[in-house]
């Protein structure tokens, strides 16, 4: 009975993920500024989430192994770490595609890209460690301890480090109204830093209800400066013109104007920001997250079973694994 239920569950994963793929391409609306490339968020973020879950499970099974010394726990810990590595690689690749569309390059050592690269290296070192020790008992013990320490870095590298960085272009505002999306308030004539860009608010020009800011935008390294003119409608309280930063798909928005102090709130409008505000996108995204999680659990079980079989056979044949 349990086995039949499991088989039905596996078939359901197949149908579910096919449905998610179909919804991603056919139902989810195009996002302004990204076109069809914005659909990648449906795959990118859930794979990153599953990798965190996988590394957490790897740490839990490692702890269980150190406590109970059952080889099966070590199999599950290794399978989870392998799954985590695979899903992190998938998140990196889908992120690189997104980066190419938005920033014009596959890799630009953005804090988010750097931290995920370090995470990949940390778990690659776990596999190197395992392959370097011949004695199975010792290998299991050391890798369990390593996996526990490796997991300590995961929350920092995935959640903390990218948000601590002052100059990330990763659209964190998709989920969190974090500091990167707070923007900067400048008075006329003042200079400030927004992301990697130097902003110099030259003047605020009012024509009726429309206020236009004249902003001199300097690229990182100040190689070039461009004059951008975002505008704001005082009557409706909404942004109007949002010109793109030179060379990238990010826009400069004029979010608020205070005429009394002659100051303005300027912000980066990242493509992908607020993408989940759309209900269809949100539900497809949640379905994708659920599907990827179920798929990972299935993969984890299969891989751990195979590792267990390999160990049993090796013991019978007297082969060292």
């Amino acid at each position: 009975m349990v086995q039949q239920m499991a088989q039905v569950g596996k078939l359901l994963i197949g149908v579910w993920m096919a449905g998610v793929a179909a919804a991603m391409f056919l139902i989810v609306p195009q996002y302004e500024g990204l076109g069809n490339a914005g659909r990648i968020i449906i795959m990118h973020v859930p794979t990153a989430w599953v990798s965190v879950l996988a590394f957490a499970l790897s740490a839990i099974f490692s702890g269980l192994y150190l406590w109970r010394r059952k080889p099966a726990y070590d199999d599950y810990a290794l399978a989870a770490a392998e799954g985590g590595f695979l899903f992190t690689a998938l998140a990196t690749i889908t992120g690189m595609i997104f980066s190419e569309v938005v920033w014009g390059v596959f890799w630009n050592w953005d804090p988010r890209q750097t931290s995920i690269f370090v995470l990949l290296l940390i778990y690659a070192a776990l596999f190197a460690l395992r392959s370097a020790i011949d004695d199975p008992q010792r290998r299991r013990q050391l890798s369990a301890v390593y996996a526990l320490f490796a997991f300590v870095t995961v929350p920092f590298l995935v959640f903390v480090a990218p948000r601590m960085a002052e100059s990330t272009l990763h659209p964190n505002c998709v989920f969190i109204q974090g500091s990167h999306c707070d923007g900067i308030t400048l008075a006329e004539g003042r200079i400030g830093l927004l992301g990697d860009h130097k902003l110099h608010l030259l003047e605020l020009e009012r024509q009726g209800d429309v206020v236009t800011a004249h902003v001199l935008v300097g690229e990182p390294g100040l190689a070039r400066e461009t004059l951008l003119r975002p505008s704001f409608n005082l009557a409706t309280g909404t942004m109007m013109d949002r010109p793109e930063f030179p060379g990238v798909r990010y826009q400069l928005g004029l979010e608020r104007v205070d005429l009394a102090s002659n100051s303005a709130l300027l912000n980066i409008e990242a493509p992908g920001t607020g993408v989940l505000a759309n209900r269809t996108t949100l539900y497809t995204f949640l379905a994708s997250t659920t599907g990827f999680t179920a798929l990972f659990i299935w993969m984890l079980h299969v891989r751990a079973t195979l590792l267990g079989i390999a160990w049993t056979l090796a013991q019978r044949e007297g082969v060292r694994l």
């Binding site: 197949g14 793929a21 391409f25 056919l26 299935w298 993969m299 299969v302 195979l306």
Partner: peptide
């Protein structure tokens, strides 16, 4: 979409078979 579905179908069949064998 056709490419994505084909890739998923291939992964699913592979996983299903390896699961049954294991």
């Amino acid at each position: 979409l056709a490419v994505a579905l084909s890739v998923w179908l291939a992964i699913f069949i592979y996983l299903w078979r390896i699961d049954a064998l294991a």
